[in-house]
Nucleic acid binder design. Structure first.
Lengths: 170, 170
DNA sequence: ACTTTAAGTCAGCCTTGTTGACATTCCAAT
DNA sequence: ATTGGAATGTCAACAAGGCTGACTTAAAGT
């Protein structure tokens, strides 16, 4: 290991909670929790010919209605070919509407149809229910800490996207 | 939505922080943070012909040396065919050793070789570095909250595996 | 002896990511 | 007005890593 246990503190503060073992537990907690986090939507989507990629597209189109394909691309961090495959399916099935831009006609602005919004609700209801249960169980201070750590883990560019969505919704 | 904003409190407590908007922010934070969380190991593994699945196998074999294939299977939550493909590659490349069980000769006990342990260190150093930086930034109380929320989100069976690893390591 | 269990293997399929090449459309600058 | 670049779309091919189903082998258990 780069640091032996207990040797991480170049600063003078109390950093006893930063042992490799503590960090390892955090890593494992992320692994198991993320599985749980995606399990409910995955269950809903399996059978309809959609997957996690469709869920993500639907989520972020719902968040920022009228977003362009390019913007969605940079939020999701995938290639346009990957996104296009997913988007094409959603448009063909009438869950997403793609409108040619008024100012810039090269751009396509994406919106959920009523049917798309309905699926979005089903998916996010399930995901929020799990989140809500966890939040209730641990209380507001733990939730604040949870959010702080997640935000601190993001790369600056992701953090920009993350905060950007916040601003849109007010 | 199942609940309109502010209508989630069936209990009498102060649950103002449980608006759909707060929950949505938590969901997005999980999405972006998990991407960041896996980014460093992914970068290390790309080019060598391994991926995230190999990383997971290596991680948990390192955690619980001598674990059986069946045990690893239930921790990872994949099929034996999926795991086998990954394990076969790691064994062929000399990163993992598979020993026939002494008590029960049907079982194979898995260990990292020196080379395997070396890659494990490279991967977990990178992942721990990110985690450590985030932990330092937010302080011990936020970290405690982070862990509490993640644990509360897990399904009981995952939580069992998660705690189980804790017990092995003491 | 018979059944069950642990592990491994083969074949095939799906989703979702990747590259590379190429067409189209349109804006903007020369 | 033409040209260059940007945004989008599309085609093809490929790989990782999930999945199912079928089947073998060896060892345990009963």
């Amino acid at each position: 290991m780069a640091d032996g246990p207990g040797t991480q503190g170049h600063s003078g503060e109390s950093l006893l909670y930063l042992t490799d073992e503590q960090l390892r537990q955090g890593i494992e907690a992320m692994f198991f929790a993320y599985r749980a986090f995606t399990a409910d939507p995955d269950r809903i989507l399996q059978g309809m010919h959609y997957g996690r990629a469709h869920h993500r597209a639907i989520h972020f189109i719902n968040c920022a209605p009228g977003t362009t394909v390019n913007n969605l691309l940079s939020i999701l961090g995938v290639t346009k070919q990957s996104l296009n495959r997913v988007l094409r399916a959603l448009i063909e099935d009438g869950l997403v509407e793609s409108r040619v831009g008024r100012a810039d006609k090269r751009e396509r602005h994406l919106f959920l149809t009523e049917e798309g919004a309905e699926l979005e609700r089903r998916l996010s209801d399930a995901q929020r229910a799990r989140m809500r249960a966890a939040y209730r169980q641990v209380g507001p201070e733990a939730v604040a800490g949870f959010r702080k750590v997640l935000e601190a883990m993001m790369d600056p560019e992701m953090h920009r996207h993350y905060s950007g969505l916040r601003e849109i919704r007010g």
